[in-house]
Design a protein around this nucleic acid. Sequence first.
DNA 1: AATTTATCGATATAAAAGTATCGAATAAGA
DNA 2: TCTTATTCGATACTTTTATATCGATAAATT
Lengths: 217, 217
Amino acid sequence: MVSIPVLTLKRLPQYLELLQQFQREGQSHVSATRLAEITGVHVTQVRKDLALTGVVGVPKVGHKTAELIEAIKSFLNWNDSSSCFLVGAGHLGSALLGYQELSRKGLSIVAAFDTDPALSGTTINGVKIYGLDRFANLCRRLHIHIGILTVPSEHAQATAQMMIDNGIVAIWNFTPVHLDVPEGIIVEDVDMSASLAVLSRRLAEKLHHETKVERSH
Amino acid sequence: MVSIPVLTLKRLPQYLELLQQFQREGQSHVSATRLAEITGVHVTQVRKDLALTGVVGVPKVGHKTAELIEAIKSFLNWNDSSSCFLVGAGHLGSALLGYQELSRKGLSIVAAFDTDPALSGTTINGVKIYGLDRFANLCRRLHIHIGILTVPSEHAQATAQMMIDNGIVAIWNFTPVHLDVPEGIIVEDVDMSASLAVLSRRLAEKLHHETKVERSH
DNA sequence: AATTTATCGATATAAAAGTATCGAATAAGA
DNA sequence: TCTTATTCGATACTTTTATATCGATAAATT
């Protein structure tokens, strides 16, 4: 199993989203050219990305939409669902518990955990909330190895460590904290701050530029 | 105002987060070397990134923590707060309304909008929710130009267009939909799917590799 | 005061990612 | 049937990004 460029991996869901839209619209075939036009990614890049998933296209017609969807899904391992635990059932945590899309992306939250005793025993969107003390036992018993981290920043590192100690090997990190983890543990940050940084700066650049243009009149 | 590499922009908040942590711990100075060690970013890269913000360090001691924090913040325009609107007060939308961090990153949600009449008039975390029909008027009156998009996928494109028609120039897009917008409009996707894709694939690679190693014994 | 050490910032090299070019394949139209 | 248009996939090239090297500088140590 070859290691794939991160940027390719990040583009694949974008293609997938479009393909599913096309499929709903009843389009049986789609070309790399078309995907490129819409996403703004270069055609050659799209071809390279798709090639990595192993699909082959037909000249003049492109790819079968359904086949391409399956290829990307199986490539990302989004076909069969992986069970995971969520720790931190606050605002963001609950939002994720109510987020239908996850199941379509091969992720199934089977239990959630929170320190707040008031939450313990309750259910959000069909997912039961437990106290943190139950984590170790349940994690081992159910052989869960993916954890979603949505606790407040100050508890992020400790909670991550606790997860790892109990068998979690992949952490989907929604906190802005940089997690220090042993080698072999996978951490993926959902970097809201990063994207906000890009937005803020681009906007500042744009406004600044416009002011300059105005002045020069 | 020079255009800055996206990847640099995305790393800056990470440094900032660390720096603020250091500041809380009372560390008056910090070196690029140290930031590199913790984040895993190469030293030279850290130096380049920091250089872009205009700071200068002192050999043997590094940078003043406080100064560096200010430099990054002002570089990202996170010093003075920008007002914005949020459209779609569902799970994710409400989570963002309750997300304290945003104000620390120069973003202040001044009003939210939703089609659900039941939400209209209510308040989440001090932010009032209006019907979508009020958007046009309020947006123009308050001169808002940043919009947070947290509506269901099927309404994403239409809502984005509506925002743009009323003066929004920067959209922070939390939907997985690729938005088709006129030139000059800034769209930043918070790509949960993208990060999940990386996680899924990396995990699959890891597990696959481990199985192979086991077999070879 | 001289030497060592840690860090800086600039420049140079290497690696990765993106873009362009080209021949081959296939469907549609002349 | 022959030609044309479109798309594919492979290879070559370009640009961007990341890493390494190096002299300079300032604090700490001898």
